[in-house]
Design a protein around this nucleic acid. Structure first.
Lengths: 109, 109
DNA sequence: CCGTATTATGTCAGAACTGACATAATACGC
DNA sequence: GCGTATTATGTCAGTTCTGACATAATACGG
């Protein structure tokens, strides 16, 4: 279950216009996906550092363990808003968030 | 129409638990709101720099002028996801986004 | 192995967000 | 002032996201 760019676009009722426009939108979508990946990784790392279970973080967030798992899996049904809420709940500062967003993934394109 | 923390929490069906918990959640909510403000400001600045109208940006985003206006007004009905989509559509890099998130507002608390 | 603690995956009703539209308010040149 | 271009505010039906639940998979000590 890995809706990526393509699927997401189709879900939005896409009908490709100019190739240029499509490519640009792809790049923008890719940047957003990459950002989500970085944030989700940051959530997992901070939580692990604090030795908290997903269930514990979920409780603090008034969310559920399954949703935390999806956050860390960068599931497309998880919004950036939720990822940020999780990070702040884990004690991250805006500076920490900024760093996470700038930090490239281990081996991602 | 300025739903802030309080209203948002109530909208979520809040019932205050311990004072400590409430305060913590307030701080976290505040951090998120502050982040949204910074991003919305970044959208306005980038768009202005490019001398684009809200309508032009909206078209590029496949959105509407009114929603771009709400983005720049940091309206609570605008998600961080949408703000990021706008920034990337305006040519921002993850690094730019990170900078925006770290940059304090002119005179905010 | 077996318990059990933790994490992953699927599903869905309800809540939040979105684009679009209408229309009001502002800004700016003429 | 008047036109008009741009931005602001309000509303709402349709889509997306969310929490919760069930349950499967994995990790790990005994």
């Amino acid at each position: 279950m890995k809706h990526t760019k393509r699927v997401r676009l189709e879900a939005h009722g896409w009908r490709v216009g100019s190739a240029q426009e499509f490519l640009d939108l792809s790049a923008e979508e890719a940047a957003l996906v990459e950002t989500k990946l970085r944030l989700s990784r940051a959530v997992r790392e901070r939580r692990a550092t604090l030795s908290q279970s997903q269930a514990a973080l979920a409780k603090r967030l008034k969310s559920s363990q399954s949703r935390v798992a999806k956050m860390e899996a960068a599931d497309p049904t998880v919004s950036v808003d939720l990822l940020l809420k999780a990070l702040f709940a884990l004690g991250a500062t805006p500076r920490d968030v900024a760093t996470a967003i700038r930090t490239p993934l281990p081996s991602a394109a």
